[in-house]
Each structure stands twice: as structure tokens, then as C-alpha cells.
């Protein structure tokens, strides 16, 4: 037993191993910053910059950063020692306030330096404490956005009210399903069906002349506008792999949404 202890002590004293441990902690902290940025809807170039600034601010040199759709890899160095680490990325959402706060953290670390513990602590705090709008307000605002979209597409007054209701209920349903960990594409189909049905049936009951458009407008909350523009940004900035992956995900999302709308319109026609 004491032989093992001696061996560990000897390892701790090894400057190469110590450096490896430091670099690993720096790499992991920088990767966590990158993951937060990706999950908040940042482009690849912003994510790369956030990872690079954090790692450099913590004292490591950068050999390379690879940002993928579902993971980020980072190789950092110190003198002759290098280490490569990877982190998985969760669902790509949009969270503007957290995005900006994490960027500010990376910029602060790049400018003033810091410790791995302080970066991890600050990041945890930001993820935990960055304000979010109340869920009822998000649902209502999303429904309002769908209804406004509907007006831009030419739906009439009665359909506006139906789309508002459909979009609001659809967003609340989406949030509940996300919390339960349901697959996002399945969520898209289910929400499109429910929101579209409410929009369509509501418009019909209210005597609207734009029932079909109300069905579509109520499900427009599912159009992934930010990922779609991010896909173009990534391709334009020299990251076609992630850009293509985003575009495929957008296409798949819309195929599932259209399936839900198709079912909703089928029921509407059957009930006519």
C-alpha cells in the first residue's frame, strides 16, 4: 500500500504530469464555455473564439479547436506538452441573454485572466441565474408572434384570434415536452398538429375565410429561423460541415412540422 502511495507522490511531483493535469482542467473549462455558447445559438466562429479566448486567458496555448454539431474538441499546449479533450453539445436552442453573458465572461478571462475554478464557478452561476421570462409570457408572446405572422400572410381577424390561441398552447406544449426529454423532431410533429388543429378549427368556428392559412400560421413557432440563418453564417465563414448539419436539422424539423400540419388539415377536411 505504501508502495502505491509513494508511486502517486512521485507522479504528483512529475512536472509533465502536473502540466497535463493543469492543461486538462483548462481545456475542460474552455470547452464548457464553448458548449454553453453553442447551446445558446452562437455560430461556429463565435464558439471557436469563446473557447480560444478562455483557454488563452487561463494560460494555455492553442493548437487547434474543432467545433462539430454535437461535440467540440480542443487541443491546448504548454511548452512541449499538449493535451486534447472533447465535450458533447446538447440541444441547440436560442438564449440571447445567456449567450451575451457567456461571451462577456470569455472576454473578461481573455483580458484579465483568471483561474479554472473561477471560470467554472462563474459559468455555473450564469447558467443558473441568467434571467428568463416567465413561461406564461413566453407562451403568450410566441402565440402573439404567430398571430402577427398570420396577419403578414393575410389571415383575417377571426383567424388572428385562433392563431394566437393555437400558438400559445403550442409553445406551452413544446416546453412541457422538452422538459420531459422528448425527441425534438417528434415534438415538432406533435406541436404542429395540436397548434395547427386549434388554429384551423378555431378559425372555422369563428367564421374565418382563411382557415388553411390559420392552420399553417399557428405552427410557425416551429420554423427554426435562427438555426437556418446560422447555417448560412457557418458556411459563409468557412465551416460547411456544421452549416450543412444545421441545414439538414432545419429541413428535418420542417418535414416533421409539415407532417403535423398535414394531419391537422386532413382532420379539418374530414370534419367539413
Amino acid at each position: 500500500m505504501s508502495g502505491v502511495r509513494d508511486e502517486l507522490d512521485e507522479d504528483d511531483a512529475d512536472p509533465v504530469r502536473m502540466r497535463h493535469r493543469d492543461l486538462e482542467r483548462i481545456a475542460n473549462a474552455a470547452l464548457r464555455v464553448g458548449r454553453a455558447l453553442m447551446e445558446c445559438g452562437a455560430s461556429v466562429s463565435v464558439t471557436r473564439l469563446g473557447v480560444t479566448m478562455t483557454a488563452r486567458g487561463l494560460g494555455a496555448g492553442i493548437i487547434g479547436v474543432r467545433v462539430g454539431y454535437a461535440s467540440i474538441g480542443l487541443t491546448v499546449s504548454a511548452e512541449q506538452t499538449t493535451i486534447t479533450r472533447m465535450i458533447s453539445v446538447g440541444g441547440h436552442g436560442v438564449n440571447h441573454r445567456l449567450d451575451m453573458a457567456v461571451r462577456a465572461l470569455a472576454a473578461r478571462v481573455a483580458e484579465k485572466g483568471g483561474t479554472v475554478a473561477s471560470v467554472n464557478g462563474d459559468l455555473d452561476r450564469l447558467i443558473r441565474e441568467t434571467p428568463r421570462h416567465p413561461v406564461w409570457l413566453v407562451a403568450l408572446a410566441t402565440g402573439g408572434a404567430c398571430a402577427a405572422f398570420g396577419r403578414l400572410l393575410g389571415v383575417d381577424g377571426p383567424a388572428f384570434a385562433a392563431v394566437l390561441l393555437g400558438g400559445t398552447i403550442g409553445q406551452d406544449m413544446r416546453r412541457r415536452l422538452v422538459v420531459r426529454g422528448v425527441n425534438p423532431f417528434v415534438i415538432s410533429a406533435l406541436v404542429a398538429f395540436v397548434a395547427g388543429s386549434i388554429g384551423g378549427w378555431g378559425a372555422r368556428l369563428l367564421g374565418s375565410a382563411s382557415v388553411d392559412m390559420a392552420t399553417i400560421a399557428a405552427s410557425l413557432l416551429l420554423v427554426p429561423g435562427v438555426p437556418a440563418t446560422n447555417a448560412q453564417t457557418d458556411i459563409m465563414e468557412g465551416y460547411p460541415t456544421v452549416g450543412s448539419a444545421r441545414a439538414v436539422a432545419v429541413g428535418m424539423m420542417m418535414v416533421f412540422a409539415a407532417t403535423g400540419i398535414w394531419c391537422a388539415q386532413g382532420l379539418l377536411r374530414a370534419g367539413a
Partner: peptide, 24 residues
């Protein structure tokens, strides 16, 4: 004006969904 009003309403609505702050 009609298009601008509803365009602004839609952008603000999605802004809430994207968690923009009140001033933004």
C-alpha cells in the same frame, strides 16, 4: 404601417422566446 406593426409584433414575440432582455 400594417406590415411594420405586425412585423414589429412578431419580432418582439420571438424576442421573448429567444430570451432578449426588456430593452433589447
Amino acid at each position: 404601417l400594417h406590415q411594420a406593426f405586425f412585423g414589429g409584433l412578431a419580432a418582439a414575440g420571438f424576442g421573448v422566446l429567444f430570451n432578449f432582455g426588456p430593452r433589447s
